[in-house]
Design a protein around this nucleic acid. Structure first.
Length: 104
DNA sequence: GTGTTGACCACAG
DNA sequence: GCTGTGGCCAACA
């Protein structure tokens, strides 16, 4: 399985998200140097060649909603709650508090 | 090779 | 607050 440098960066950053925290497509995109390519980030995670390795459940939309990945990672929501992330109606409670902004 | 689509975000009206 | 448009990367028809 060979992937592009872009996707590799995406997975690298996503894996850096600490337990109990989440991030957004936009933040990840910005971190890897493509602030306008949140779509490509989602696409990379959609393929998800590192399914258990990349915590896709810690990646959500910019407004705190879970997003459309819900179909494949629904059980991960419960896992997030176990890690301390409160999820309410497919939305993250205290989203800004647990949001891991890769702000260097 | 061109156009469309996809787990999206930001800006303008 | 909602809608439309522009923007990036990769995959598919």
């Amino acid at each position: 399985m060979i992937i592009s440098e872009f996707e590799r960066d995406v997975y690298r950053v996503v894996k850096l998200i600490p337990k109990g925290k989440v991030s957004t497509y936009g933040q990840i995109a910005k971190k890897i140097g493509r602030p306008d390519s949140a779509r490509a980030v989602g696409n990379a995670l959609n393929k998800n060649p590192f399914a258990p390795l990349v915590p896709c459940h810690r990646v959500v939309k910019g407004n705190g909603e879970l997003g459309g990945y819900n179909g494949g990672c629904s059980n991960k929501q419960k896992l997030l709650r176990t890690e301390g992330v409160i999820i309410k109606n497919n939305k993250i409670t205290d989203f800004e508090k647990i949001l891991n902004k890769f702000d260097n």
